[in-house]
Nucleic acid binder design. Structure first.
Lengths: 237, 237
DNA sequence: GATGAACATTGCGCTAGATCAAACTTCTGC
DNA sequence: GCAGAAGTTTGATCTAGCGCAATGTTCATC
């Protein structure tokens, strides 16, 4: 456990309206922990005994099907709360949280949830905003999966990742955590071969630049155009 | 506007912990209204000025893509709150709510939301449980769309509908609101032709019984077996 | 610096399911 | 009762992208 400074929390939305003293209290109740890339912070279905704040890195929220296939429902960037089952009226975690990169997270026992909500102005409302955003994101995923072709879904997924957790770099925007073809396929409901083929094709025309576990989006605009293009004219009323 | 009785609300989870007097107050502030089949109660993106409680009928929550295609994200059965954008920290509705059948709904102005949450014990927590359930449902949809074949997705969709808003009948369970092949296709991300073909095939072997705008699930067990069967062995680690 | 594991690429065949099209049935309104 | 609309069925193609397989590349470990 390392020394933490109040200035870490104060700029983050859930805590932005709080006094220095309040943040100090919150920090004193927190457990800070580093997790290696790939480990799971908590598992779907287990009792939600803690809630978390991601200080650094990226979380991959995954569901595992009975058949053992993995589906990524969400990526959570640094600065957001996660594992907040209480806000959904649940006492178990609805999905598994994996560290997409090495991460640093604070956590608090669930028993403190109610007092956070009651005592810290803005905490509850910001939490619900976060949930609202995640709900929209899931909704978008559903709409995309129903109407878009694989090519467009992958384009959109890359744009979203670049936007959400991208690092600007000379050649474009680099997705700031290691990501494999298989990861992208689990995010878009395809196969790693298809992802590989597309990335190769896009690389050839200078849209992206990808190495092993690294993807750099070079031409955001053309990729966006691609993702909007020929959506299936199915069910056009 | 018709006469409403307290006994209507008291068995519903969001109000179950309240006194008769409290429910009376809530009712006095409510607007009751009937909507014809097919009309929209509110539209995606418009300012969320009211929140609703569905007393009778079924709501179909839909999103419309830029290309004009419709995607159904959710069905809401009688007894549940809907249009509760406030609980997601939003001030506009995230989707359009259509009446799948003729429906009856109460509504309150958004301005009352905060006082409901503050004054009525159990209201907030039940709301969040509802949201939690909807989030799981959406999650399930995403997982299904990524890993299941059309046949299984349709099977699951029918089972879910039968379960959620089914009426037991001699021949099996009837989905209690009018539903077309096109509706099912918008719910499962397919085409109405494919749905029609499958329903015909299932009808031939006695799994379902469907007429125009009516679907009766006859053999729940075999349909469930079908829906669990051959999930794509893709990405099996 | 060799061996194995993890990740990526590419080719080929195949099928689930979309697309196009046409006919049929049931309902609604006049 | 008729016309048109809305919903359904069925057939005949056609193709996106999956499954399978083989090979290549990069990384980690001893």
């Amino acid at each position: 456990m390392q020394k933490l400074d109040e200035s870490l929390l104060s700029p983050l939305p859930p805590f932005s309206k709080l006094s220095r003293a309040q943040i100090k209290t919150i920090l004193s109740q927190a457990t800070s922990r580093r997790y290696d890339k790939g480990v799971s912070i908590f598992d779907e279905g287990t009792v939600a005994d803690r809630f978390y704040l991601l200080l650094d890195g990226t979380i991959r929220v995954v569901k595992i099907t009975p058949a053992g296939e993995q589906v990524t429902s969400l990526h959570i960037p640094a600065g957001q709360l996660f594992g907040i089952s209480q806000a959904l009226g649940r006492d178990t975690y609805p999905a598994t949280a994996n560290a997409a990169s090495e991460i640093l997270a604070l956590s608090w026992p669930t028993s403190l949830w109610a007092s956070f909500v009651a005592n810290y102005p803005g905490f509850a409302s910001e939490t619900y905003k976060t949930i609202g955003k995640r709900v929209s994101e899931m909704n978008t995923r559903i709409v995309e999966m129903s109407t878009q072709h694989v090519e467009q879904r992958i384009a959109r997924a890359l744009l979203r990742l670049a936007n959400q957790s991208g690092r600007p770099i000379e050649a474009g925007t680099e997705i700031s955590f290691p990501i494999t073809r298989k990861d992208v396929s689990e995010l878009t409901g395809t196969t790693l071969q298809t992802v590989s083929r597309l990335l190769s094709a896009w690389e050839r025309v200078g849209l992206v630049n990808s190495k092993r576990k690294k993807i750099i989006v070079c031409d955001t605009h053309r990729l966006a155009a691609l993702s909007e293009a020929g959506s299936r004219p199915q069910n056009l009323m």
